[in-house]
Design a protein around this nucleic acid. Structure first.
Ligand code: MN
Ligand code: MN
Ligand code: ZN
Ligand code: ZN
Lengths: 151, 151
DNA sequence: GCGGTTGTTTTGACTAATTCAAAACAACTG
DNA sequence: CAGTTGTTTTGAATTAGTCAAAACAACCGC
């Protein structure tokens, strides 16, 4: 499974190699898919790549995502009530809005500038690495459907 | 299972009744346990009450916690990588620090005053109800153990 | 206090999401 | 091009939680 190597930069492959990982077809497929469909679950990704790569298994996808996350290539995000999602946007301290009805996820840039939420008022002796902010709400579609149902 | 009724106020029972729920032994046990051990998981709670109430099942605990959460008596919290936790502190917009190593959870009072993180910079048309802030870090114990292992 | 109604718990099965481990395999190094 | 090492496949197991029917108990009114 090697593309015409040595010619174009082939960004995804370089990113994987730069992370100290071997470049493989399933890994390229997962990374490509994740670029086009951020906040996908492992199962979403498996469904998205299985036609192009028959013989691929969910376990492979889980393994790939773990490796990517450990290498800092992707970020995990656990919305309440749905399986873990993954995305390529890393290291920019952005947050998420989740629709409590349909579980849709949208990115939210950090509210108060750079890394605002990173200082808890009292850290109880913890060393804090990161702050995850998750807004719960209703997406536009679900607002409309709720308006219909209610009243 | 009726205590000497009509004498003392019996706070937990009143809280349950005020929420429009019937007062039962397992419900009292769960609420009591949750007061003494906030951020417990369903399984934690089951383990904590099963000796006092043999014959209780995990399903009962799950049912009780769902009813309590729906009634606003308890709050759920989903730390990444561990089962859902529950607590009695409700309606005060407080947040959490989670130790990424041992999964310990601590409360953090809201950082910037009242309800700071409640305004996303761009809400994409979402109506936002609440903001969950989760700080990831290392607890004191895990810092020390990490210091030993590393260097 | 007694019985009926309704909400709660038990019992038992089942699903979804994820993890573990051994063997087969393929990418990269020299 | 062969060896080494990391990756994927295959197959099974586990964890966390859900669903549904039947047994049961709290609470209301009498
Ligand atoms: Mn995102
Ligand atoms: Mn708390
Ligand atoms: Zn929605
Ligand atoms: Zn810890």
């Amino acid at each position: 499974m090697q593309a015409a190597a040595g010619m174009e930069p082939d960004l995804p492959a370089r990113a994987i190699r730069a992370a100290g990982l071997k470049v493989t077809a399933p890994r390229l497929a997962v990374l490509e898919m994740l670029r086009g469909a951020p906040h996908s679950s492992a199962e979403d990704i498996f469904a998205g790549i299985r036609s192009a790569l028959p013989g691929t298994s969910t376990q492979a996808v889980y393994g790939i995502l773990s490796a990517f996350a450990a290498a800092g290539l992707v970020r995990r995000f656990d919305p309440p009530g749905s399986p873990t999602r993954f995305e390529c946007r890393v290291g920019d301290n952005h947050h998420h809005i989740v629709c409590v009805r349909c579980r849709a996820v949208r990115d939210v840039d950090c509210v108060v500038g750079q890394a605002p939420c990173l200082q808890p008022s009292d850290d109880s002796g913890f060393v804090v690495f990161a702050a995850e902010v998750t807004f719960n709400g209703l997406c536009k579609t679900c607002q409309e459907q709720a308006a219909h149902t209610e009243v």
